[in-house]
Simulated scan of single mutants.
Amino acid sequence: MNEQKNTTKTQIKQAAIRQIEKFGIDKTSMRSIAAEANMTTGAIYYYYKNKQDLFAEIVTDSIHFAHRIFHENKNEKITVDSLFSDVEKEVRIRFKRLQEEKLYLLLLSDAMKCDSEFSQKYTSGLKSILDQAATLFASAFALDDRKLAEQFASIFMATLDGFAIQQVLHAIPKDDTSYADTILDFFTTCVPYYIEKHRES
């Protein structure tokens, strides 16, 4: 049952991405998404209360690494090695998802335009993901300093978002994996070093 539900939701999200690419966020409706997915509008509303709800899930599922890692490791001890192994996998996946990156940036732009329901939902979701990322850093490095863990989470996510903007605008090559290599090498080298230095001070 859950597998069928996940398959259907994936079908809906892929249809939504195609519609947004063709017509933009404002002109994409639940009706047009349903037609694109070869489903009834009622079937779409069974899973999502509105298009903002659907769009927010697309962004969370496709882009934000912390959400998946946090839930996959909820009942397991997180080590530095396991965290960076999971992060590496997620970063490489994200760098290949150009369409989702475009959607993410479009939704972010839309969320900043006004204090709408989607803006509030997006802000709440982003805070939750930052909190999850901070928890991952704090757990892996046994950090008592929660604020430091939050800062690491914020810096790391800001770095990925910055690269996403450059990639979508074709300022950097979309197929050049060396950018992901550099990000991962930088953080796996610098974060442990900084934490040790912080503990000594």
Rank of each mutant, 00 (worst) to 15 (best):
I155Y: 11
A56C: 10
T182Q: 13
F186G: 05
I93Y: 14
N38D: 15
T7E: 15
A138T: 02
T123Q: 15
K89G: 00
M157K: 02
E72F: 06
Q151D: 11
R97I: 01
M1F: 13
N73L: 11
D181A: 04
A15C: 11
E117T: 07
A43M: 13
A149L: 01
N2Y: 14
E57D: 13
R97M: 09
A133M: 12
A138H: 05
K147G: 07
Q11T: 10
A111G: 05
L136Q: 06
S139M: 09
R199D: 00
R97W: 00
M39P: 01
D81F: 07
T7R: 15
L130G: 04
E88L: 05
Q167R: 15
A16I: 01
A158P: 02
K27H: 14
K89W: 04
Q52T: 05
Q19P: 04
K121V: 10
F55T: 00
F70L: 00
Q166D: 11
K74F: 15
H198M: 06
D81K: 13
F84E: 02
I93H: 14
L169G: 00
H67Q: 12
G125V: 00
S29P: 03
T188L: 09
M157F: 07
C114T: 13
M39N: 02
T182L: 12
T159E: 15
I155H: 08
I58P: 05
R18G: 03
I33H: 11
T188Y: 10
T60R: 15
D110M: 09
F152M: 09
R18I: 07
D26C: 08
L126Q: 14
T40G: 15
I183K: 09
Q166Y: 05
A149C: 01
I172C: 02
H64W: 13
E21R: 08
I155Q: 06
D81V: 09
S62G: 12
R199G: 00
F186P: 00
L108T: 13
N50F: 03
E76P: 02
A35S: 12
T182V: 10
L160A: 01
F163C: 01
F23I: 10
I183S: 04
T189S: 12
T28G: 06
K102Y: 07
L160D: 02
K102T: 04
L103G: 04
F152P: 06
Y45C: 06
A164F: 00
K51M: 01
I20W: 10
S128D: 14
T135Q: 09
A43R: 12
D26R: 12
C114H: 12
N38L: 11
V91F: 13
A158N: 13
M30C: 12
A164W: 02
E76R: 08
I44P: 03
T135D: 12
T28V: 10
L148W: 10
D145F: 05
Y45H: 14
L103T: 04
E200R: 11
E101G: 14
I195C: 04
K5S: 15
S154L: 14
I172E: 02
A35P: 02
M30Y: 07
L105R: 05
K5F: 07
D53K: 03
L169H: 11
S82Y: 06
F84T: 00
H64M: 07
